[in-house]
Design a protein around this nucleic acid. Sequence first.
DNA 1: TAGATTGTTAATCGATTAACAATC
DNA 2: TAGATTGTTAATCGATTAACAATC
Lengths: 224, 224
Amino acid sequence: MSAERPLRSAPRPSLRRMPMYLRCLRALQKTSVEWVSCTYLAEVLQMDPTLVRKDLALTGVVGKPKVGFQLSGLIAAMEHFIGWDNLEDAFLVGVGNLGSALLGYEGFGQHGLNIVAGFDVDAAKVGSEIQGRQILHVDKLPGLAQRMHIGIGIITVGVRAAQGVADLMVSGGIRAIWNFAPMRLEVPAGMIVENEDLAGTLAVLSRRLAGLSVDLPVVEPKAE
Amino acid sequence: MSAERPLRSAPRPSLRRMPMYLRCLRALQKTSVEWVSCTYLAEVLQMDPTLVRKDLALTGVVGKPKVGFQLSGLIAAMEHFIGWDNLEDAFLVGVGNLGSALLGYEGFGQHGLNIVAGFDVDAAKVGSEIQGRQILHVDKLPGLAQRMHIGIGIITVGVRAAQGVADLMVSGGIRAIWNFAPMRLEVPAGMIVENEDLAGTLAVLSRRLAGLSVDLPVVEPKAE
DNA sequence: TAGATTGTTAATCGATTAACAATC
DNA sequence: TAGATTGTTAATCGATTAACAATC
């Protein structure tokens, strides 16, 4: 256990970058490397080293000049900083293409997430197992969520159904919603909602491909 | 055709918000409304009206004080601004859970994207049809991409295979990559790469749920 | 007209980058 | 030691918000 500095509030951009760092660090851990520097991470991730240093500092770890950071301590601090040091149970609603894909993703355990069950209204799906998870009727969600103390709801239904599903989640005591439906949900104050907007990324890509200008986050010319 | 102002370079955050606006506008269009104001959009999307106005101004449209913007003109301008006024052909590589989900998504036509075929190395998939798209062996990608002038490559393989797939896309003359593999791709200067990082969003959600502080983009208290 | 909304300029806020002293 | 890297403060950059005149 190394020395710590007081934890600061987390800027959202920094927080969004944490999983990238974590992935690199975990990969390094398999190679029996014990120390890692910001310089190294910056190079691998094509980033400014100062920015990496600032981000790591947020987790409270202290490094050694010339050496870097102890890998295991840094990983632990980062997992704790993100809130991934404990698995959180989740319900997923909408077992279509995208919902099934998320249900089947093996890596969520590494990301603090445990999807317990899937929900749908489609009679052909209800009662079956998809990706090894039971699929239940959404009607059952509020009661089960209450009883099982589910913290996270994942919405992968279409725009039409999304608000209704969110309401069910709220009534089930779910406190955080990961929303893949392309719309803003109306939820009571205190609810946590994070929207995943694939179209936003696609818009940036499309405009750049069309040859139109986009303010880029400094594409370093990688001097030779 | 309405008056235009000179188009400016697009700030990335603004560009990412455009699809949201567009979705609202298209929904309105079905209701035979003809005019829309920034005030209205801001309310529906839970945003600051000034920010909406700034964003819309980027597209070059001019509104009428007290009335707002003509819906059809605004939609056309926004589609053009994003680069969605023409469909771009795409190849998708990695027909696993996520890849299949994307292949099956019907809405990409609304987002300027036409996924022409899927690719994989799995003999069980190659030669079959998934979500109505032919699945071919990745070996065929460079040649086909060249011949068909494919502009966009979508990478939905794992981290291990992603760089190799990117290399194939580059050699096939593909100019833009939408990358779902959680890693930074090494590509020649001039290539367009946009990374989709689901884990980033999940990190923000997890930290907030853990009761730790996050700098939020102004959660307006919604005064009563 | 009155008033809502646009368009624009200025102020604020926050994130990134640069500079540099401290240190192992 | 010398030099790479950390930690921190200052400068820059860019996005958002506020203020307000113009206008239909």
